[in-house]
Amino acid sequence: MSSLKYRLFKNKLLTLSVVIFSALTAVPLVLIIGKVFLKGWRQINWDFFTKTTPTTLDALLAINNNQPIPGGIANGIVGTLMMVLVASVIAIPLGVMCGIYLSENRKTKFSTVVRFLTDLLQGTPSIILGIIAYLWVVIPLKGYSALAGSVALAIMMLPLIVRSTEETMNLLPASLKEAGLALGSPYRSVVLKVLLPSAFGGVFTGILLAVSRVIGETAPLMLTALGATTIQWDITKPASAVSLLIWEFYNDPNLQSMIWSASLFLLLLVLSLNILAKQLAKKWRI
């Protein structure tokens, strides 16, 4: 009898500690969002999205007059969106094609090597990818540019897109491919017109997650996009990014309060991308 009681007690103890520890893991996230929101929301207004970064002097004057700092992060938002867009244009076709290849040729030596290298790339520190993009793009083009930043981000997105495409394609039943081929259609059109559309949900979710993963990257952009104080639409010129701005605000004593508002913006952007991806994954389940 006593041993049964003891076991029940152990059971309860374990359950309780699991609940406590799971709660503890959620605490930092709640604290971060709370802190960023409390300190950042005051700066967020229309100007914040439409004006470029204020100079130190403007900020100093506003602080002395006890007003919110003028200006915003429009140059960063434009730079981030442009670089993520160009990175996607590079990474999506390559990543999706590579993922299809890996799923269609699961056991060949080449695909084993590619799969291994993809995993390796996923674990590569982003600063190193920044250095690579510096060597490949900044030096040949003789200058920092948004394009160089996009290349660094594209390399970061690649492994995520490759693996999510591969995993989704692996989930498709063999009967689907057989049905396509049994109609006498060439392999190419079975892959492009039957398999890929059927896997669209998973592939798209993977792309969204890859975007949300790189949208807050800072280190590789420091070595490639450099930063800019004005809105720059030319991808061969240096550009700013929201994450770069946070770093710049940190280095400027007069712009400290902008750190929080820019962080809040970035955090909300990443969170909503993640939530959107999760919802779509649920909706488009194979």
């Binding site: 039943p173 009967s175 689907l176 057989e178 049905a179 396509g180 081929l181 049994a182 109609l183 006498g184 259609s185 060439p186 039957v194 559309p197 059927s198 669209f200």
Partner: peptide, 21 residues
């Protein structure tokens, strides 16, 4: 050519497999 063969000889499978998209 296998494509030609499969157009001459159609196949219906054990489980219905219409293209879901």
């Amino acid at each position: 050519n296998p494509s030609e063969v499969r157009r001459m000889a159609g196949m219906v499978f054990q489980r219905p497999n219409p293209f879901p998209t």
